[in-house]
Each structure stands twice: as structure tokens, then as C-alpha cells.
């Protein structure tokens, strides 16, 4: 393999790895801009991965799987949001609750539905690679861009949709206004809490799809398969200064790191623990550098 093939290979798998990150970050943007710290992204993703996979395997339909993942995750987000807003509980602690709830409920249900608490692999349809035949053979970037599976393209559309919703819609304007100046929203006769709740549920929706985009292409549900991506998405938003474009860029950089470390593992036989640790390390370094640059 020439270095060029290696590079395009890494790039293509980076775009695939970016899919869940991008979706989770899009979801996290809603809550960030609504003025809340949403640490539940991780748990919401995991719920989306499990319920998305379960529904897809039961119905044999990818679309229904995605939808189920999104709805289940939205429901958990609603519960978490309601506790936070209606009971005026601490958002950080209720976020932990969601993060603990997701792996537990999925384990309990997995045991009861699939008879195992570890990896569940069942035949489900593979996501289509829509452009493979016509454009997949294009040289260089063409190959990279057009070799992705349909969920990746869906994630790009959804991320753009999230940005549109936030900046060009009435709902998005209200959500941003709530984050910027909740008392002004209240003075204008609206309930800031309902916009916060909407933001949380929307973040659940996007995280659910993000989770489904982990389990569906793999054709399996692996316990704890979100493996820190929710946190990484949170850092991406933070480094992206809560702007959609820059957040997406940050997601791409993290995905690139992930894909590179996967390549490195195959190449140099590094123990899997180190490979798993690399995304955390990259995120930590990026967070430290990004914060110190920002504060200057």
C-alpha cells in the first residue's frame, strides 16, 4: 500500500468515526446554547445504541431502528430534563443519573431480551453505501467522501439541520435567548424552562441517532460502546466555542485521532488498552491547549 492509500484510508475511516461524534455534538449544542451543562450525552448515546439496535433487529428495518433509538433516548432525556427543571434538581447530578441509568437499564433489558449482558450480535440490514458504485472509485477525496455509508450522510444533513434549527428558526432563537438571558425570555411572557426542556429532549433525539449510528453499522450492541464519545462531544462543543462550524471541525479532528490510533494498532500491535485510552488522551490535551489558548 502506498502512503496515499494509507492516508485516504485513514481519512475515510475518520469520516465514519466522526458520524456519532458529530451527531452527539449537534445534540449537545442545543443544551449548551440553552445555558445548561449536559453531561448526559454519554448515557443518552448508549441508550440510543441499544434501543436502536434492538428495534432494528426486531423489525429488520434500519430506519425504524434509528427512529426507536432517537425516541428512547429522547424519553430518557425528557425524564432527566423534567427532574432537573421541574424539581429544580442539580443538572450535573441528574446528568450523572442518566449516565448511570443508561448502562444499567440496557444491561437489565439485554439480559431479559437477548439472554446476555455482553455483546449482542444479530443479523440486521447493513447501511447502504449509496455512492459506492458510481463515485466510490473516484481518486483521492472522491473515494473518501463517497465511500461512506448512508448514516454518515444522514449525520451531515442532521448536523446542518441542527444548525439551521438553532440559528434560523423561532424555536432555536428562543432556545438561544433562554441560554443568553433567561429572565428576558420570562419578561417577554414565555417560560424559559419549557425551552430548556425542549433543548434537552432535542439533545436526546440527536444523541439517540448518534448511538444508533454506532450499533447499526456494526450490526451488534456492545455494552458501554459509546466509550466516552459523549464526553468527547462535549469537549468538541467547548473547543468549538459553541459555534456549529467550529464544533464540527473539532469533531473531525477527534475522529481523525481515533481513526489514526486504530490504524496504528493494526500496524504496530499496540495493546488495546492503549488504543482505547488514546481518544481520552487526545481530548484531554486538546482541552488543555484549547482552554489555555482561549484564556490568553
Amino acid at each position: 500500500m502506498s502512503w496515499l492509500d494509507t492516508a485516504t484510508g485513514i481519512l475515510a475511516s475518520a469520516l465514519a468515526a466522526m458520524t456519532p461524534l458529530l451527531l452527539a455534538a449537534a445534540g449537545g449544542l442545543f443544551t449548551e446554547l440553552a445555558g445548561m451543562l449536559n453531561i448526559a450525552l454519554e448515557g443518552l448515546m448508549l441508550a440510543g445504541a441499544f434501543f436502536g439496535f434492538a428495534a432494528a433487529s426486531a423489525t429488520g428495518s434500519l430506519s425504524l431502528g434509528i427512529l426507536a433509538g432517537a425516541l428512547a433516548s429522547s424519553a430518557i432525556a425528557w425524564l432527566y430534563g423534567s427532574a432537573t427543571l421541574r424539581l429544580k434538581a442539580n443538572a450535573f447530578i441528574t446528568g450523572l443519573a442518566a449516565n448511570i441509568f443508561a448502562p444499567s437499564i440496557t444491561a437489565v433489558l439485554s439480559a431479559s431480551w437477548f439472554g446476555t449482558k455482553s455483546v449482542v450480535a444479530l443479523p440486521i440490514p447493513e447501511p447502504a453505501r449509496i455512492f459506492q458504485k458510481s463515485f466510490g472509485k473516484l481518486p483521492l477525496l472522491g473515494g473518501v467522501l463517497f465511500s461512506q455509508h448512508s448514516l454518515s450522510y444522514l449525520s451531515w444533513i442532521l448536523a446542518a439541520g441542527a444548525a439551521l434549527l438553532l440559528y434560523r428558526s423561532v424555536l432555536g432563537t428562543r432556545i438561544r435567548a433562554t441560554g443568553a438571558r433567561a429572565e428576558a425570555v420570562a419578561a417577554a411572557g414565555f417560560k424559559p424552562d419549557s425551552y430548556k426542556l425542549a433543548a434537552i429532549v432535542l439533545s436526546g433525539f440527536f444523541c439517540g441517532i448518534a448511538g444508533a449510528s454506532l450499533s447499526l453499522p456494526l450490526g451488534a450492541y456492545v455494552p458501554n460502546m459509546s466509550s466516552g464519545r459523549g464526553w468527547i462531544a462535549l469537549v468538541a462543543i467547548y473547543l468549538g466555542n459553541r459555534r456549529p462550524g467550529r464544533t464540527a471541525l473539532a469533531c473531525f479532528i477527534f475522529a481523525l485521532a481515533e481513526s489514526f490510533s486504530n490504524y496504528a494498532q493494526g500496524q504496530f500491535g499496540i495493546p488495546s488498552e492503549f488504543i482505547l485510552a488514546i481518544p481520552f488522551a487526545v481530548t484531554l490535551v486538546a482541552l488543555s491547549l484549547g482552554t489555555s489558548v482561549k484564556s490568553e
Binding site: L79, Y80, L87, A89, I93, A97, A98, P103, S104, I105
Partner: peptide, 13 residues
């Protein structure tokens, strides 16, 4: 874990 989550959900209410 689920019980723990319930505790977290309500403890700071």
C-alpha cells in the same frame, strides 16, 4: 445501577 440513578435523579431536588 438503576436504583442509584433514581437516587441521583431526586437527591438534589
Amino acid at each position: 445501577g438503576i436504583i442509584q440513578a433514581v437516587i441521583f435523579l431526586f437527591i438534589t431536588a
